[in-house]
Structure formats: C-alpha cells, structure tokens
Nucleic acid binder design. Structure first.
Lengths: 168, 168
DNA sequence: TCAAACTGTTTGACTATCAAACAATTCGGC
DNA sequence: GCCGAATTGTTTGATAGTCAAACAGTTTGA
C-alpha cells in the first residue's frame, strides 16, 4: 500500500482532551465584519431560498425573472452581467425557465446574434405571485429592526459594498 | 433530431429592441436587505480570499486554522459544526492542511474514534503570519465607516443573523 | 472588404457541498 | 456486564454552480 499520509494519525496522546468545553469559536474571527456579514447573509439567503422554493423557484431564477420583467428584451449577456455570472452560465438558467414556460427567447431582427428575453403570460403571473412572498420575506428579515435601523443598515452595507476602485 | 425546445427562439420581432439603455436592475430587488447584504458580502469575501491567497490559503482553511488554534484538540465533527459544514466535508479539508504540514490528527487515548486536531509548529507560524493580513483586510473593508458606524453595522448584522426560532 | 469583436452555445473541468452507507468504537439502559 | 443505539471518521456518489476555452454565426469599424 502507498504510504498514505492522507489521514495519518499521530500516536495516542492522553492530553488535548478538551474535557471542559467552552463553545467552539475564535475571537479573531468573531471580531471581523466579514464574520457577522457572512452569518447574516447565510440566514437571509436560507429564508429567501425557502420562501422561493414554495413557489418552485430557485433564488437565481427569481433574480432572472425580475430582471427580465424590468428590462424586457435584454440579451442573455446583459442578464449575466446584471446577475454577476458568466454568459455561459446563463444558458442553462434560461433553458430551465423556458422549459417552465416562464420566459421566451425572441429572435431580434436588428441583431440576429442576440436573444431578446421576455416573460410569457405565465411568467408574468409568476412574478405577480412572487411579490407578496418577497414582502413577507423582507418583513421576517427586518423583524428585529426599526424602520430607521433598517435604512441605516442598508446604507452602511452599500458603503461597504463599494469597491476600492476609485481609491487613493 | 429531437424537437429540441431547449433554446428555441420565437420568430423575429423588431420591437423589444431596448435601444436606449437604462442600467439593468430591478427596483423590487434593490430594495431588499438581502440584496445589499449579498453585494457587501461578495465584496468582502473577494477581498478576504485575495488576501489569504497571498498566503497560499483558502478562506475555509483560514477558518479551520484559527479555530484549531483557539480550540486545540477539538474533533473533526466539532470543527465541522463550528464551520457550518458537514463532517464528511471536513475530511478533505484537514487532509489538505495535513499535507501542508500545518495540522496534525492526534489519536486520543480516551476515545479512539475521534481525532484531536492540533496545529504543528509550521501551522502556528502560519497563523502568526496571518494576523496582520487579517487586520489590513478589516481596515480596507471598514475604510468608509467611522468606528462608531462599524460597531453599529456589526450590531445590526448580528440582530439580522438571529434566526426566527423563538418567534412571536 | 475584411479583421476584430461580440453572441449564444457546447464541452470539460473544478469546487463545494450533502446524503448514505460502512466499520470501529463508545455509550446507556437494563 | 451485555448489547442495542449512537457517534466518529471515512468513502462513495450525486448535485449545483461556476468558469474557461473553443466554435460558428453575425455585426462592427477601419
């Protein structure tokens, strides 16, 4: 057999027993903004995904549907840019939505390379059904915040999100 | 060939041309806390990942190293719980860190099922080298926030992160 | 006119994750 | 003490999401 150092175990050691057990965390991690950010984002995403799963949609599909409704006729590349994913990843996403009869690829006379994306009737109905679900989601997320705190949080987050592009 | 409705295109349509181009977004999405949260988290994560890549480590590996140092002798299952990943996902993570000589699996005399995880000398040195990088990362992230705003943001995020378990 | 750029697509790879099953080991109730 | 139930690390297989590179068809621009 190969000298599998893969999961090698050092010889037994009575110490390191960790008998008493303070909760497993790390001070230096817990003090980072990114740490709180990650936990909050995880919780929000899970709530969002669960809410949308009730409608038979994934978060990515919801984003695509809303963007297509607000920007009727946009191309797949534009959609990808807005979603922050590669245009090659847009293909199976739209394939799926099209199979569900929610979205149409419309050939455009003025530029035969691109597909103009549009919602079908069913797709528009799905968006309408989606809106109250989004509102309830938002209310759950902000349940422990006052309206003013909610605004403050969004403002601070948006400032964090600004890349250091135009720096100095 | 199968009637591939996969990427079917509806017949050409001169309209839907989207000639003038307001930026591609959606009002209903941009108004959600989760939207700002996601953007901020994305930016922070990218900065974090880039900073750690300079040390030859992934974010997950950094988390594991810090947790192991702060909780010497913890088991793989405990580490997985602290990181929020399945214990079967811990295996390749530790495999990798062990191959890099940063972590040891120590057999424990008191319970021969578990591996007690410990940093090696090299691992401790890596953690020491990591700390100033973490500090610089945090300073970049909070660059546009006053110290008070930074505290406020963490507080609000932590309140959002609290699950709705004990509700109503 | 024609090279360069862009579009949607296909293919292949990679990462991260979980679920289920397994043997070894420990625990708990009796 | 005994023995079924629970736990640990591991393996294997599946899924999802992503990108990079290459392609043919199309448009643009010099």
């Amino acid at each position: 057999m190969a000298t599998s150092t893969a999961h090698a175990r050092t010889r037994p050691d009575a110490a390191g027993d960790r008998g008493a057990r303070p909760p497993v965390t790390d001070r230096r991690l817990a003090v980072l903004l990114g740490y709180s950010l990650r936990r909050a984002q995880l919780r929000v995403f899970q709530d969002f995904a669960a809410a949308m799963a009730d409608l038979g949609l994934t978060p990515g599909q919801v984003g695509a549907l809303l963007l297509i409704e607000s920007n009727r006729g946009l191309s797949q590349s534009e959609l990808g840019a807005a979603l922050g994913i590669d245009r090659s990843s847009v293909v199976p996403l739209i394939d799926r939505l099209q199979a569900m009869k929610l979205v149409r690829r419309v050939a455009r006379a003025s530029d035969r390379r691109t597909n103009a994306l549009e919602l079908t009737e069913v797709g528009e109905a799905a968006v309408r059904r989606m809106l109250p679900v989004l509102e309830r989601h938002e209310r759950r997320i902000a349940a422990r915040l006052s309206p003013a705190e909610r605004r403050t949080l969004m403002d601070l987050l948006d400032r964090v999100a600004v890349a250091q592009d135009a720096e100095e």
